[in-house]
């Protein structure tokens, strides 16, 4: 079985044969004991392709039990890894990429014509011959959703403690440093001289963290559509936590903080553009805090000002607009507070909107996740398995 005969690639059929007794070893080597960083220099989602090539061989020899057993062990193995690494972004992202890739493979090689339109002739030859795995596709889709939810939970847990200080408290515009509303100057300056406690994250640190998440997901070959959905969900979290704090804290409702917040949101938008994520709908989730920042900056005196505010603040509800106007704190003795009659004017204008009464944003709101079908251009017969993976018990067929 260990005799290796040099064969040309065209002789391979893109399948991997294994002995039934080796199934547990396969799952242990490729899933439960697997370290994602051992395959950084190979084809993205290598474990998914290897598993699929094993499934193909079991299908080819018409062994339904072997197919079912491998798929069940694979799914249970992935669940086990996720449970053990439930706070690890890299491992969770890796298995999201691989389960969704395995799901795509089960579709691409199912023999269903809807999934074959982009296949090469060779890929069509590699379609499953004997079994319809539609029910297992459903299980893998459910599993992928579970992994996605875990990934969001892990990422949110990392960025949540950074959001308030990065978006509302750190001073990323140098010229604005020290310009704070009356009576709040000390709070910020004492934080700066602390030398950075656990709560003093800068905007740069938050963006760097988002960059790390993005880099990991991209390098692991997670579908760009899924990456976009993760980023959108994290941007929703940034928006919700920032806005909720703004709505409860008088000290951040000032003209200069509006300027700071507008700058910070523009940096976030810039990050999306720089990473080709602007189409991901993530930018739209920032609209409420962009409008809140503008609301802090615009004039709030005349009836025309009231009209302008109402047409500007479409992503904030009446309660939120009124609350920000009430909290607005003048920067110095030359600036006036927002008058009661101005706020009434706004309320009258917004009456017809019938906005919901909730003041705070639901930070836990989750957008429904979708895994659009993404076939691969890879030819299975060309797949190279590095010897370092310790899978020499698999026989290329």
């Amino acid at each position: 079985r260990q005799v290796t005969v040099q064969r040309k690639e065209k002789d391979f059929e893109g399948m991997l044969e294994y002995y039934k007794d080796d199934e547990a070893l396969l799952v242990k080597t490729l899933i439960t004991d697997f370290k994602p960083n051992t395959v950084t220099a190979t084809v993205p989602c290598l474990p998914a392709y290897i598993l699929f090539m094993c499934i193909r061989h079991a299908d080819y020899i018409n062994d339904d039990q072997k197919v079912e057993s491998l798929l069940t062990s694979t799914i249970n193995g992935i669940k086990k890894v996720l449970k053990k690494n439930n706070d690890d972004f890299e491992v969770t992202s890796f298995w999201l990429a691989n389960s969704s890739r395995l799901l795509h493979c089960l579709k691409q090689y199912s023999g269903d014509e809807v999934f074959m339109t982009q296949n090469t002739a060779k890929q069509n030859e590699h379609c499953l011959k004997n079994f319809d795995l539609a029910e297992y596709r459903q299980v893998l889709s459910d599993l992928s959703i579970q992994i996605y939810q875990q990934l969001i939970k892990v990422a949110e847990g990392i960025i949540q403690p950074m959001i308030v200080s990065a978006m509302l408290e750190s001073e990323s515009i140098p010229s604005l440093a020290g310009v704070k509303p009356m009576g709040y100057r000390n709070r910020s300056s004492s934080m700066d001289t602390d030398g950075g406690g656990p709560s003093s994250y800068t905007l740069e640190a938050l963006i760097r963290q988002l960059g790390q998440f993005h880099g990991i997901m991209r390098d692991q070959g997670l579908d760009p559509e899924i990456v976009g959905q993760v980023v959108r969900q994290l941007f929703h979290c940034v928006n919700a936590v920032t806005l909720n704090n703004l709505l409860l804290r008088k000290d951040v409702c000032s003209w200069s903080n509006g300027m700071q917040l507008r700058y910070n949101t523009s940096q976030m938008e810039e990050w999306l553009r720089g990473n080709n994520l602007y189409q991901s709908k993530a930018a739209a989730t920032l609209e409420p805090i962009i409008q809140a920042a503008q609301l802090l900056q615009v004039k709030k005196k005349t009836s025309q000002d009231a009209e302008a505010i109402c047409s500007l603040c479409t992503a904030l509800n009446t309660q939120q607009i009124v609350k920000i106007l009430n909290l607005y704190t003048p920067l110095n003795e030359f600036e006036e507070r927002v008058t009661v009659s101005f706020i009434r004017n706004i309320q009258n204008r917004l009456q017809e909107r019938n906005d919901p009464p909730q003041l705070l944003v639901d930070t836990k709101h989750t957008f429904p996740v979708l895994f659009p079908y993404t076939p691969s251009a890879l030819s299975l017969e060309t797949l190279h398995i590095p010897a370092s993976l310790g899978l020499d018990f698999l026989i290329r067929v």
């Binding site: 339904d64 197919v67 079912e68 798929l71 069940t72 799914i75 249970n76 669940k79 023999g111 069509n124 379609c127 499953l128 011959k129 004997n130 079994f131 319809d132 795995l133 539609a134 029910e135 297992y136 459903q138 299980v139 459910d142 599993l143 579970q146």
Partner: peptide, 30 residues
């Protein structure tokens, strides 16, 4: 291309059922 012959549908348990089976298997093993 020749039309392929119909494939046999392999019935799969749900994700939750798979987990239950897995747990009971682990309990049985020493």
């Amino acid at each position: 291309r020749l039309p392929s012959r119909p494939r046999i549908l392999l019935k799969a348990p749900t994700l939750a059922e798979m987990e239950e089976m897995n747990i009971s298997e682990e309990e049985e093993s020493p």
